[in-house]
Design a protein around this nucleic acid. Structure first.
Lengths: 135, 135
DNA sequence: TTAATTGCAAACATTTTGCAGGTTC
DNA sequence: GAACCTGCAAAATGTTTGCAATTAA
């Protein structure tokens, strides 16, 4: 099964031209649902024997995120995570372990939303539930 | 009116010993409701003619935040904002301008919360409403 | 006076940039 | 072949650290 085809279609559907490096990075991001930092993406690409430069990883993640292929999750200022799950959902963040995990959108119900200020429109709502390990 | 007295009481009530630099930084943070980055705090302190080193600003903001005097708000990966409003509330983040503003807690009602995973306890919930300027 | 705090400068980590060379359509 | 993309190394952030000097209680 030509995995490359899927990735190409995915990139094309988001108006991203296909290159070796982008395919490689996309393959890793979409291999399974996960939250990866730029550094982890770089590691995994290189672990598979391919080589993509650091700058390209950053550029590509930024591009994917602008194009809506992945979603940036900002939780810890020291690192941005990229989430290949772009469907509406929220996150648990375990502050003891630094682990990020998904919360299904249906498990969080916002009964009431604040008014949206003049001249702006809603881009999205992030709910982050911070947890601590009980000791 | 001896402003210093208020700040001293504030620090003391949070179990923080009072020093010139800490008073100076607290004065700025509590002058009005605002969201400042470490760099902005440093600028404002220096603008008032006092001098506090960069390291002390970072140390002090971290200390204040650990002691519950201020709250860390992580939204923009490039910098942490410190919010002198520690009462429960959420944030608007205007992605077009990078501006952060408060949403009163009563304007956001979480009707349903996800279950808290085994062996962990809730540390807090952040709701970030991302806005975009309408063009 | 004795422990805590500060300033400095250097170290770090992460991300961005400039530009020469390579790739894609 | 023209526009776009990539790699490298250097630069730009933002934050932390080690340690000697200063300040607080």
């Amino acid at each position: 099964m030509p995995i490359g085809t899927d990735v190409d279609a995915l990139l094309a559907s988001h108006d991203i031209s296909s290159t070796q490096q982008r395919r490689q990075i996309a393959r890793i991001l979409f291999a399974r649902p996960q939250h990866l930092s730029a550094e982890q993406v770089l590691e995994q690409v290189n672990a598979e024997g391919y080589r993509v430069s650091k700058a390209t990883v950053y550029n590509t993640l930024g591009l994917f995120s602008r194009k809506g292929l992945i979603r940036e999750v900002v939780i810890d200022p020291s690192k941005v995570f990229y989430d290949s799950n772009t469907s509406p959902h929220h996150h648990y963040y375990n502050v003891s372990t630094g682990t990020l995990s998904d919360i299904d959108a249906t498990d969080v119900v916002l009964a009431q939303l604040p008014t949206i200020p003049e001249a702006t429109e809603l881009e999205g709502i992030d709910v982050i539930v911070r947890l601590r390990n009980r000791d």
